[in-house]
């Protein structure tokens, strides 16, 4: 299977197999004008199977969101067909407007213009809590 190489753009690599579609949705990539390739179940020596997303344009991507969904991803920035930067992702300490508090008793449910902020309170179990009401975030995946 051939996917054209990218001139300028972003490659999200080492996505855990099965998570690419969710990441595609959460990053809002369907709104982009450029070509976006989702490659699923690619053979990987390290992971067995992995997914890859290739974005054929130099667009900003939300590293916090990617780190929250899949902290083992790597992000490659391509310029003039060359890899100019390879970023490893980790679980972000804070998430701003990435996930939203679902507690109906939380102030975020009524206060206008209030950012939804979650803090990583348990790294091992990947638990985030709302900074206002301390409600645990539901797992995205």
């Amino acid at each position: 299977m051939n996917i054209d190489s990218i001139v300028n753009g972003v490659v999200i690599d080492h996505i855990s197999a099965g998570k690419a579609m969710k990441l595609y949705e959460l990053l809002g990539l369907e709104k982009l004008d450029c070509s976006v390739a989702i490659i699923k179940n690619v053979h990987s020596n390290r992971m067995g199977k992995k997914d890859i997303i290739k974005i054929d344009a130099d667009v900003p991507v939300d590293f916090d969101l990617i780190g929250y969904v899949d902290p083992d991803c790597t992000i490659n920035i391509i310029k003039n067909e060359k890899l100019i930067e390879k970023k490893t992702i980790s679980l972000p300490e804070e998430l701003h407007n990435v996930i939203f508090c679902k507690n109906p008793r939380c102030i975020t449910s009524v206060e206008r213009g209030l950012e939804h902020v979650f803090k990583l309170t348990d790294k091992k179990n990947k638990i985030y809590r709302c900074i206002y009401c301390e409600t645990k975030a539901e797992q995205v995946l």
Partner: peptide, 24 residues
């Protein structure tokens, strides 16, 4: 609403005392 006094504390120019925020 839970967290309302915390929101208040981020903008207030005087000390805020939480006198109870819902069940929190």
């Amino acid at each position: 609403k839970e967290g309302a006094p915390f929101v208040a504390s981020r903008v207030a120019e005087v000390p805020i005392i939480n006198a109870g925020d819902g069940g929190h």
